[in-house]
Amino acid sequence: MKPEALLHPTPAGLYCPPGDFYIDPVRPVDRAVVTHGHADHARSGHGAVLATPETLEIMATRYGEDFTERRQSAEIGEVVNLNGVALWLVPAGHVLGSAQAVVEHKGTRMVVTGDYKRRRDPTCAGFEPVPCDVLISEATFGLPVFRHPDTAGEVAKLLHSLEQFPERAHLVGAYALGKAQRIIRHLREQGYDETIYIHGAMQRLCDLYERLGVPLGPLAPATVKDGRGAKQDFEGKVVVCPPSAMGSTWARRFPDPVIAFASGWMRVRQRAKQKGVELPLIVSDHADWDELTDTVREVDPHQLWVTHGREDALVRWAEVEGRVARPLHLIGYEDEND
């Protein structure tokens, strides 16, 4: 069948008419397939949600147990029949529980990557390429200037700064789901075994990661105890917080903090400057340019559809490569989040 008849963009999100379901819908729908737990992909209020068990737990943690009327848990690789359409989930390597959605019907197979990356992430299963007719790829960092450096080197920058400025707290802005736990895991792998302090908004997700088998080492809430001298307790410590907290009044409890920010956007100097970041750490949960193009070559689909991000550059690249490619211009995904 024609791929457009199997999946096509609508204002609510990617829709599959024969299966009557949406993938990562941005509005409440009867049946949703959710690739991962980030808020712009996983919203509450759907009739039914199909996702990996981890993603369902993340959604319940974020939105409460009643985030949907009906949960349908699908293990990785487990084929589910939705009105005659076969659907299964394959690891995407983005955050814990993240998956690509593979949709197959009448001999046509389409793969929706969701958000993904190819490099190693100690907190989740790695991306697995799936041969298909149509690859629907994200393009958050779809410009050839985005080449994320080696993660260990970026984390080493943080460790070096801790040595250089032992009297200052190191405030690391990182998204509460995925990035925060990944940075903590990398710090542990690189030998940092001191207590890491976390912002209150991260507590439940960190607990969940631990429960799902991602050990994070000693963590403590970044709260100031009553009494004097509490501020000094954070000298030379790592404090992980959501990016929005870096410029908030909350940040004042720390002594002369070094403001670090772990994000793929830190590759561009002006971005880091604008945010007042002193220590940019280029660590992303999205594929960089090389990962995007390598993945297209490896999967080698008949057609490439590009969803959110910088679609134009990736489509241009594909066309120069002699591939059939089109932008989908899906709306509602916040590509600033990384």
């Binding site: 410009l143 050839p144 200037v145 985005f146 590759r267 561009v268 100097r269 241009r316």
Partner: peptide
């Protein structure tokens, strides 16, 4: 064409060239 898009996005020529 990809360099021009990148230069537009980054702003600074030296930085765009270094990154790409």
């Amino acid at each position: 064409a990809l360099f021009d898009m990148s230069h537009d996005y980054v702003g600074d020529l030296a930085e765009a060239a270094a990154l790409i």
